[in-house]
Nucleic acid binder design. Structure first.
Length: 587
RNA sequence: GCGCCCGUAGCUCAGUCGGAUAGAGCAACAGCCUUCUAAGCUGUGGGUCACUGGUUCGAAUCCAGUCGGGCGUGCCA
C-alpha cells in the first residue's frame, strides 16, 4: 500500500504528464488552507514559471486531464494557480478501512532493501554513560528501528570508544597508583589475573584524575601517548589490563542501554579495527595515498568539485600511533567488505562534523568506501536550563542511571498529585512511573529536530502537560481502556464507515502515518514521527470529547468508532515502537 | 583568521530544494468533569520571522552584505 499523498501526487503527476509537463509537478501536500480544501497542489505555478505560461491556464488544463475524478468532492482553482482538492467522505472511509486491513497500516516497504550500518559512535570505556550519550542512543535507536521497519537490512554497532589515548592515560594513571601490579612489569611472563584490578566505579573515578594530570602535565601526556602506542602494538601487560577496563566498563554500559531499551547487533569498538590497520596502511602507502607531513603520515584531501579546502587526515602520528580517523577507515573497510554496506550512518555529535568530512573524503579518495554512501547523522548539543552544556547542580556530569531515577521520581510525584493509578498494586505503580519517566526523557529528546541544540529541563519534560511523552502514553492507554471496556460490554470494533464532520479530522489524520514514517526515513530525523504521534493523540482526544462511544446506541456507528479507536491504538503502538517508547497497559 | 550551525510569540521550538491568512507547546486569561482516564477538551490575547539590500507575480524560506550567538579549527575522541 502507498500513502494517500503518494497516490494523490501520482494522480496529479499523471495529469501533468498528460498535458506534456513533468509529473514531478504533481506533488500534493496537506492544505495550508483547510477552509478551501483538504489538499493542495502548487505544481502549476512552478511549471508555468519554467514554461513562461499563465499558471491558471496550466492548472485548468491539468485538471481537465485528471483521472479518477470521482474520488473528489471538490476540485477548484484559486489565486494565481493553486489547486485545492477535497476528497469524498466515501473515499476517505474506504481508504482508512484499507489501512486497517493492512498489517503494515499502509506503510510501504522499500523497493530495494539496502545493507545499512548504524554507528552509534559509542560511549568511551571508563567514562560513565552520562546524559551526553542520550542523544546518539535515542536517535540512533529510533533510526535503526525505522530503517528495519522499511525493510532494509540493518546492522547497528555501539562502536565503543575503547582504543584512543584515554586508554593510555588510564594505564599510566593506574600505574602511578598501583605500580606493583604485574601488568606493568615487562619481565612478567606468567598468566595475568582473571579478576579485574579495578571496579567500575573506581574506573570512572580514575579517568578524571588521569585527564586532569595529562592536561596540566605535558610529560604525563607524552607517557600516555607512548603507552597508547604500546597498547596498540600489543604489549601483553597493557593488553590484559585494557581487556579488564573494557569488560568492567561494558558491564555498566550494557545495563544502562538495557534500561533505555536500546539494543545493538554488534558490540564492537574501535579496537576491533586494529588488526586490519597494518595491512590497510601498507596498501595505502603502496598506492601513494599517504604522505609525510611534519613528522606525521597523512592522507591529503584535495577538494573535488564544489568542495572546500580541508586539512589532511592524519593516519599515523609522530609517535607511530594511529589516530581515530585511521580506526574509522579500517572499520569502514570491514563494513564495506564483510557487511557489504550500502549506507553507513554515523549518529554522532555535530561537533565532529569536520572529522567525518575528512574521513569520508579520505575513504572515497582511497576507494575504501567502495560504493557505500557515508553520512554523518549529526545532532546538536544538549544544554542545561541556563543554555550551557548540561551539568548537575554540583557541576559534574549527570550519569544516565541517576537521570532515569530522577525522571521516575518526578513521574511518581505527578501521578500521586493527580491521583493516577492510586488503586494499582505498588509494583505496577513503580513500573508505570519508570515507563512514563523514560518516555518523558526520550520524547523530549526526539521531538527536537536532531540538528538543533536543545535545553534539557527535566522539570519541564516530566510536567506531563502538553507536548510530552506522558501525554502520548495517556492517549494510547485511553484507547486501550476504551477497547477493554467495549469488550466487557460485548461490543467489538467493526468496519470503519465513511466519516461525517465529527470523524473526518481523525480519519484524515490517520492517513498521514506512512508519510511521517517516510520523512523519518528520508531525513534521518525521528522528530517527524514525534510530531505525527502528538497530532494523532490530540485529534483522538478531540474526537473522544465529542463522541461518547460506549453510550452510542447506533450499533454500526459504535462499531465503526471502535474500529477507529483500534486503528489509532495500532498506530500508537507502531509509531511509539519506532521511537523506542514503551506503552504501559494502563496508567 | 578560516569553516560549519543558528537568530521566528514573554519562554522552548516547528515551518526554510519560494506559494495563499507564519504554527505548536508552555506561561496568561475565560469556560468544560452525575458519561469511555480532566496527565484531557474548548475559546481569547500575543509576531518589524535579527537588520539592510537584491532576485521573483510571490521571500521566514533563495542570493549578497551587516549585526548578534554557538561550535569547530593537524598529531584527543
Amino acid at each position: 500500500m502507498q500513502s494517500l499523498l503518494t497516490k494523490l501526487s501520482a494522480l496529479f503527476g499523471d495529469a501533468f504528464e498528460e498535458i506534456g509537463i513533468g509529473s514531478s509537478h504533481g506533488t500534493v501536500v496537506v492544505s495550508a488552507r483547510p477552509d478551501l480544501g483538504q489538499f493542495q497542489c502548487n505544481g502549476a505555478l512552478a511549471a508555468a514559471k519554467a514554461l513562461k505560461r499563465n499558471p491558471r491556464e496550466v492548472a485548468e488544463q491539468m485538471l481537465e486531464a485528471l483521472a479518477e475524478r470521482e474520488i473528489f468532492a471538490d476540485l477548484s482553482l484559486a489565486g494565481p494557480g493553486f489547486v485545492n482538492a477535497t476528497l469524498t467522505d466515501a473515499f476517505i472511509g474506504e481508504w482508512v478501512a484499507g489501512m486497517g486491513r493492512d498489517e503494515r497500516l499502509g506503510c510501504p516497504l522499500v523497493e530495494r532493501p539496502r545493507n545499512v550500518v548504524v554507528d552509534f559512535g559509542g560511549p568511551n570505556v571508563a567514562k560513565a554513560m552520562h546524559v551526553g550519550h542520550l542523544r546518539s542512543s535515542i536517535i540512533g535507536d529510533s533510526l535503526q528501528r525505522v530503517f528495519r521497519y522499511r525493510g532494509d537490512v540493518v546492522t547497528s554497532d555501539v562502536h565503543l570508544g575503547d582504543w584512543g589515548r584515554q586508554m593510555g592515560m588510564l594505564i599510566m594513571e593506574l600505574k602511578r597508583e598501583q605500580p606493583g601490579l604485574p601488568y606493568f612489569d615487562e619481565a612478567y611472563t606468567g598468566p595475568y589475573p582473571t579478576e579485574p584490578p579495578i571496579a567500575s566505579e573506581d574506573l570512572e573515578a580514575l579517568y578524571p584524575r588521569a585527564n586532569d594530570r595529562c592536561k596540566n602535565d605535558p610529560e604525563a601526556m607524552d607517557a600516555a601517548r607512548v603507552a597508547t602506542m604500546e597498547l596498540q602494538q600489543g604489549r601483553p601487560g597493557y593488553r590484559a589490563l585494557w581487556r579488564h577496563f573494557v569488560d568492567v566498563s561494558s558491564a555498566t554500559l550494557k545495563r544502562d542501554f538495557e534500561s533505555l531499551g536500546v539494543q545493538f547487533d554488534l558490540w564492537l569498538g574501535e579496537s576491533d579495527a586494529n588488526p586490519r590497520i597494518p595491512a590497510m596502511l601498507e596498501r595505502l602507502e603502496g598506492n601513494g595515498f599517504i604522505e609525510e607531513d611534519q613528522g606525521a603520515r597523512v592522507i591529503k584531501l584535495p577538494p573535488a568539485d564544489g568542495e572546500k579546502e580541508i586539512e589532511p587526515l592524519i593516519v599515523v602520528n609522530r609517535e607511530g600511533g594511529v589516530m581515530y580517523g585511521t580506526t574509522d577507515l579500517a572499520t569502514l573497510e570491514q563494513r564495506v567488505n564483510d557487511l557489504h554496506a550500502d549506507l553507513v550512518l554515523y549518529v554522532v555529535d555535530a561537533r565532529q562534523g569536520r572529522h567525518f568530512d575528512q574521513v569520508f573524503r579520505a575513504a572515497r579518495r582511497t576507494g575504501i568506501a567502495g560504493n557505500a554512501i557515508l553520512e554523518h547523522v549529526a545532532f546538536g548539543t544538549m544544554n542545561g536550563p541556563d543554555g550551557k552544556p548540561f551539568k548537575t547542580r554540583e557541576g559534574g556530569v549527570m550519569k544516565l542511571g541517576d537521570l532515569i531515577s530522577m525522571a521516575t521520581v518526578q513521574a511518581t510525584e505527578r501521578m500521586s498529585e493527580a491521583e493516577i493509578a492510586k488503586d494499582y498494586p505498588g509494583e505496577e505503580q513503580e513500573l508505570i512511573a519508570r515507563t512514563v519517566g523514560i518516555a518523558a526523557v526520550k520524547y523530549a529528546d526526539l521531538m527536537n529536530h536532531r540538528t538543533s541544540d536543545y535545553i534539557f529541563d527535566l522539570d519541564k519534560f516530566t510536567r506531563f502537560e502538553g507536548r510530552t511523552g506522558a501525554y502520548l502514553l495517556y492517549a494510547a492507554v485511553r484507547s486501550k481502556s476504551i477497547l477493554r471496556k467495549a469488550t466487557e460490554r460485548g461490543f467489538s470494533p467493526g468496519e470503519v464507515l465513511a466519516p461525517g464532520d465529527r470523524e473526518r479530522p481523525l480519519l484524515l489524520q490517520l492517513t498521514r502515518l506512512p508519510d511521517a514514517v517516510e520523512d523519518v526515513y528520508e531525513k534521518r530525523a525521528p522528530s517527524f514521527l514525534c510530531e505525527y504521534v502528538y497530532d494523532l493523540a490530540q485529534t483522538l482526544s478531540r474526537f473522544l470529547a465529542e463522541c461518547h462511544i460506549l453510550s452510542e446506541s447506533d450499533a454500526a456507528l459504535r462499531a465503526s468508532w471502535l474500529g477507529l479507536v483500534e486503528l489509532c491504538l495500532r498506530q500508537f503502538e507502531l509509531a511509539l515502537d519506532l521511537l523506542g517508547i514503551e506503552i504501559p497497559e494502563r496508567m
